[in-house]
């Protein structure tokens, strides 16, 4: 409990003070701040394009979208769990080990590619389910539970690959990483499909409402007749499935699975949704924001490389930009009272 004597959130008075600001401005401010991540994104694209016009070429923008695909799906996987007020540090490691198991099934057991990919997805989904069961049934704290799971999965991946990189994946497995439709790569289609499905699920389904309610106030959701544990298990399980999909796409795109596959994605997969307005306390956030966060991080990543920032500085500058983005978001939440 806080030791501060907090100001009474005198709602009636604050309501009055708000109501007096011209409605249209308030609306514009709210909407503008709500999509502040998109304003950022456009600004950075313009700056990078000025610094190097190649940035704005079709082929480079396609590259940005391809690069954003894996991060985007991992960001969705993380968001599903963040929305119910939990966190899952094992999404990236899950993507790595599940795809490796699928690939090994193809290489060592002679399974067809699609079966291998399906095995990967099944393993990832199962890992998500285990996370969900641990957090709800055993009441483990998700931060630590998923940290343990992450280390186990990373170690497991190292063990089954014996430190080697899995290569020589069949063409049928890697097809999707290179395929194009009418000159457009297929990977981003997966990204957009993933976001579209998530958007419909969150906005238009009972499950989506239940996820928000569970994260918004789990006690109320329970009393209101939502089976909160069940919803959390579904969130973790779906998250595992989406992480598995990201893992498969990463393997297919890279045409290889390293012994630390996916690891570098974890922190960005957490940062992207938060930059996009998903609350770490649950109950808040939407698909458009998450997509904006994912694209913003990818643009920073690709843009810094394209304007020839020496590689020693790329990570630092990227970090500073992320830091600023999160600070702006914090200001947004304070400014509009977290609406």
């Amino acid at each position: 409990m806080s030791a501060n004597i907090e100001p009474n959130t005198g709602t009636a008075d604050s309501l009055r003070s708000n109501a007096s600001v011209p409605k249209i401005w308030r609306y514009a401010l709210q909407k503008g701040l709500q999509y502040v991540v998109w304003i950022w994104l456009v600004g950075l694209i313009i700056i990078f394009s000025i610094l190097n016009p190649f940035f704005f070429s079709t082929s480079n923008l396609q590259n940005v979208l391809v690069q954003a695909t894996v991060l985007g799906l991992l960001g969705l996987a993380q968001s599903l769990v963040l929305l119910v007020g939990e966190i899952d540090l094992s999404v990236a490691a899950n993507a790595g080990i599940s795809s490796a198991l699928g690939a090994l099934a193809i290489q060592h057991l002679g399974m067809p590619s699609f079966v291998g990919a399906a095995i990967g997805l099944a393993v990832a989904t199962l890992i998500g389910l285990v996370n969900g069961l641990c957090v709800t049934r055993l009441r483990m704290v998700s931060l630590i539970e998923s940290l343990g799971m992450m280390i186990m999965l990373q170690g497991g991946l190292l063990a089954i690959t014996q430190g080697n990189t899995i290569t020589d994946l069949p063409n049928a497995y890697t097809w999707i990483g290179k395929a194009t439709l009418d000159g457009w790569p297929v990977m981003p289609i997966m990204l957009l499909a993933g976001f579209a499905a998530m958007g419909v699920m969150l906005q238009r389904t009972v499950l989506g409402r239940s996820l928000y309610a569970t994260g918004g106030n789990a006690a109320t959701a329970f009393v209101a007749g939502i089976r909160v544990h069940q919803i959390k298990i579904i969130a973790f399980t779906l998250s595992g499935f989406v992480a598995g999909l990201a893992g498969y796409l990463l393997g297919a795109w890279q045409m290889a699975i390293t012994s630390d596959q996916g690891e570098g994605f974890l922190l960005y997969a957490i940062a992207a949704p938060i930059i996009g307005g998903v609350s770490v306390f649950g109950g808040r956030g939407g698909t458009l924001g998450i997509l904006g966060g994912v694209l913003l991080l990818t643009v920073i990543h690709v843009g810094l490389a394209i304007i020839y920032v020496p590689s020693f500085y790329v990570t630092m500058i990227g970090g500073i930009l992320i830091f600023i983005a999160v600070a702006v978001d914090a200001i947004r939440v304070n400014a509009i009272g977290g609406l």
């Binding site: 389904t205 009972v206 409402r209 239940s210 928000y212 309610a213 918004g216 106030n217 006690a219 109320t220 959701a221 329970f222 009393v223 209101a224 007749g225 939502i226 109950g283 808040r284 977290g338």
Partner: peptide, 23 residues
């Protein structure tokens, strides 16, 4: 504590217990 979800809209709060009947 467990009656309303303050960060959600009036609309979402009202239908929270009857989601199955509006879907």
């Amino acid at each position: 504590k467990d009656g309303i979800i303050t960060i959600e809209s009036i609309r979402n709060n009202i239908v929270l217990s009857s989601l199955s009947s509006v879907s």
